[in-house]
Design a protein around this nucleic acid. Sequence first.
DNA 1: TTGTATGCGTTATCAC
DNA 2: GTGATAACGCATACAA
Lengths: 346, 346
Amino acid sequence: MMKKYTIKDIAQLAGVSKGTIDRVIHNRGNVAKDVENKVKRLLEDINYQPNLIARNLKNNRIYQIGALLPDPKKDAYWEVCTDGINQALSEFSAFDIRLHTMLFDPTDTESFIKSHQQLMTSAPDIILMVPLFYKEAKSVLKNYEEAGIQVCTFNNQIEVSKANFIGQDLYQSGRVAAKLLHTIADKGDMAIIHIDEKYKNAVHMQEKERGFKSYFDDLSGFQDHILKCKIRYTETEDKLRAFLINNSNLKGVFVTNSKAFHVARLLETENKNHIKLVGYDLLAENVNYLKVGVIDFLIHQNPRQQAYLGLKFLIEHLVFEKQIPNKFLLPIDIINSENVTPFLRD
Amino acid sequence: MMKKYTIKDIAQLAGVSKGTIDRVIHNRGNVAKDVENKVKRLLEDINYQPNLIARNLKNNRIYQIGALLPDPKKDAYWEVCTDGINQALSEFSAFDIRLHTMLFDPTDTESFIKSHQQLMTSAPDIILMVPLFYKEAKSVLKNYEEAGIQVCTFNNQIEVSKANFIGQDLYQSGRVAAKLLHTIADKGDMAIIHIDEKYKNAVHMQEKERGFKSYFDDLSGFQDHILKCKIRYTETEDKLRAFLINNSNLKGVFVTNSKAFHVARLLETENKNHIKLVGYDLLAENVNYLKVGVIDFLIHQNPRQQAYLGLKFLIEHLVFEKQIPNKFLLPIDIINSENVTPFLRD
DNA sequence: TTGTATGCGTTATCAC
DNA sequence: GTGATAACGCATACAA
């Protein structure tokens, strides 16, 4: 534990005034070369760390943060994001942070664009967003980039953009699901089910599928045993029932989003309890089926933590000038009926 | 987002000076009753929140924290605690925090007592500790309590003490292990194995055992199928081999601490790969057996996070006067070969 | 090119 | 009982 040097200390050591030290630190110029060098060396030597807290005492700026998020009323998955955002705000309540949130319908690309446009009118310093739709998000992100507005994205990554990203390795989470089904299911067919393809150009489902397949590709004996089924939410019930009944050798099902409860409901009514089921996310409906044993495992994507971290990174960037990590991957949580409870508060 | 009121604002509103407000806030007395009441009501009305940052600017106290921890050189499980502690320290580097760490041998109760005594000589303001040995920890904690020194414990809880605790619900983690084995193992005998009982009056293993049994008690068909085996580390190899070979109907094994790799080694050499294995903790040896499929699941107790949170709570208590939660339970993480990687940095 | 004065919100020490 | 005032570490406007 070393002594903490202040600007005053350094000024004394260098035999100049605090003002000069400040000019050197912030490269404001108007300092004689020899003095500048001397001070710079001194700063290096003692490894000067400014007191970030004191720095912000003076700086009573108002920080404007824009948020472009899916509407929880349209899809319950997003509900917990609000908690994460509120937590971050309360942690930094000492600073004057104004959050402007615009919600969009996660099944509607136009709503995304419209919300984006409206958000821009509040002229935010920096933006937090869920870039749900690949094509639209790409162009929106390009807008921000050109405007020089830093953006932090979460949930799914738009690879081509330079925006920072917080979320999970979706490819790897597909592999986790595969490993789980491989461990628990009897030998037979495995199905990947994509529900609600209204989320059109959504890459995340494809990434999970790629991971899932790659796991079984690494094994022998699973060629031609990986089935696939895409379903629109308008037709879920009937098409799904047909799929489950017609594939008599089906032993495991992987649902690539939070809609596993649709499959669970059918497995229960059709008495197919030999079929193992793995899905995503701790929605109340999923958790119920997990507890009664119809869903075997859920993968937790921790949207609350994603939103929390995203906002926290942005705030720390604004007030402390901290670097935002370009890519921050959360661990992939495996949930069963016995460990689910403490995750519900996350 | 409401306006932030400062003491100056309140002084103006109340028509008195900042000094008086300060005296009211800190109950320093020397304030006329009517003025005091008026100011108190005002503080309530506008929900005054002091700026904790500014408060600590002035308050350049040195905080002495004592830490009583198991020596990572004696048991690799504790290695990652150091990372957690360093993270907390670096997060609060703006404050002058002096950490005095005393290590003890986790197989030796006397070493625990001796380290404790030595720690006391540094007269810490507050203490972070792992109360590994029930009897000894109980008396040590009583000492601290009488001396009025606040303590935060992690890893295992000493129920009779009022000290704050951070860790997992060990009973529940036993249930998680049971559920996992029940899901993946064939019908047959299940064994609970306690390795290294040198950790004598250690309650944590018994708690895990209780949880494990309770899960199977809730089911039918498992009476008389739960076996149990205690092993000293000096005799591990032979006794364990005999146990695994003699119980021919064994289908699943639950190791109650981080020593599952001992069992894994034997399962591999004895070609018993039909026996499923669940254990604890991401030691390098365990992770290796997890990746090759000899260990099926590991439960992650996140010692890094436990140490980090413990120290963080203590520091926030000292500098911000925050309440330390009496009991803080971390989620029980289920780890398999596919999701292990990101947890290794935790 | 450099030093000084002032202020951020809070606390503590004075003098009245 | 009460109200000024200095100080914490840093930033900045302004004077020299």
